Amino acid sequence: MLKTRILTALVALPLAIAAIVWLPTGGLVTAVAALMLVGAWEWASMMGGDRGQRALFVALVALVISVFWALAGPAFVNGGGALIIGAACVFWVGVVALLARFPKAWTATLGQPGWAMIAGCVVLAAPVAALGYIHHQDQGAWLILVLCFMIWGADTGAYIAGKTWGQRKLIPAVSPGKTLEGAYGGIAAAMAFGALGAFVLDLSALRILGFTVMGTAIALVSIVGDLTISMFKRSAGLKDSGAFFPGHGGVLDRLDSLIAAAPWFVVGLWLLA
């Protein structure tokens, strides 16, 4: 299993970085959209849907992405892109209440197929719009890499801090392994990578400070994204959302933090502008 995980990472990571750096915005958006459609299949699976229901949900998510693409263009730079990005940000704030009151609050909301379907359309369409918007900006490809390193830093920092100092459980009903100490380590690492990324991009001192602060938000929403997919899996009795990445699980297992963080990174860029 470890060998498979390493081999998958050695293939997937360079491909992802190459796509971010060298693909035009439309190409990157197409690649992200394809991954989100795989994620839609997994989302419907966690909802308990059969093959027909999963296919129908994939088609629905594809329709939502297509409509917003038609409204906003492949870079999602106008109001259509802002609408779906804003809706996702609202969702990621609101879902915290469900995590805090799991499983009771879950049963009445995302535990219902209708609500889960609506949330899935927003959650899976928003990263397509967000990454298209970021990629279209000056130094857009490098901004996406900064976002990725903030997320990876948060994940690694949380793991190291949790293993070393973890005592107090974060939300044990959803994810017994996550601790408050791990969350603090993840926040610190994301802040450091945010500052480093802004420095490497030769941004102003004020923007370096802004990216440092943004690291806190990115780390927090990354944790929320991870916990939300864990909440789905725990309710469905699944270990992984899928098997798209051998040794790592599904698209939602690997990209949950990016799916949650990308819309909020756009908000951070708007505020810094």
Rank of each mutant, 00 (worst) to 15 (best):
A189V: 15
R5E: 06
L131Y: 04
L209M: 12
K3W: 13
M1E: 15
H248W: 11
T4R: 13
V200K: 06
L131K: 03
S241H: 08
V267R: 04
L98G: 03
L110A: 07
L15R: 03
A55T: 13
W152S: 10
M214S: 10
I20H: 08
T109I: 09
T216V: 15
S230W: 02
D226Y: 02
L201Q: 07
A219S: 13
A108N: 12
L28D: 05
L269Q: 11
I171D: 02
G48H: 07
G49K: 14
I65G: 00
A12W: 10
V224W: 01
D202W: 10
Q167G: 01
F57L: 10
K239C: 08
L35Y: 01
F211P: 11
R168S: 14
L196M: 15
G225E: 06
V58S: 07
L37M: 13
V93Q: 04
F245R: 02
V267E: 07
T25K: 06
A55E: 08
P24F: 11
A97S: 14
K233S: 01
I118P: 04
A154W: 06
L28V: 03
A116C: 07
F149T: 12
A125H: 02
I218R: 02
G73F: 08
L71E: 11
K163M: 13
A72Y: 02
V123N: 04
A31V: 14
M150E: 09
L170Q: 05
P246N: 00
A119D: 08
A82D: 14
G27Q: 09
P172Y: 03
A19Y: 04
T216A: 14
I223M: 15
V29I: 00
A161M: 10
S235P: 00
V122Y: 01
L238W: 11
Q137D: 12
W152F: 13
G186R: 01
Y184Q: 08
L196G: 15
V123Q: 04
A188R: 04
A31L: 15
G140R: 05
L201K: 00
A70N: 13
A192G: 01
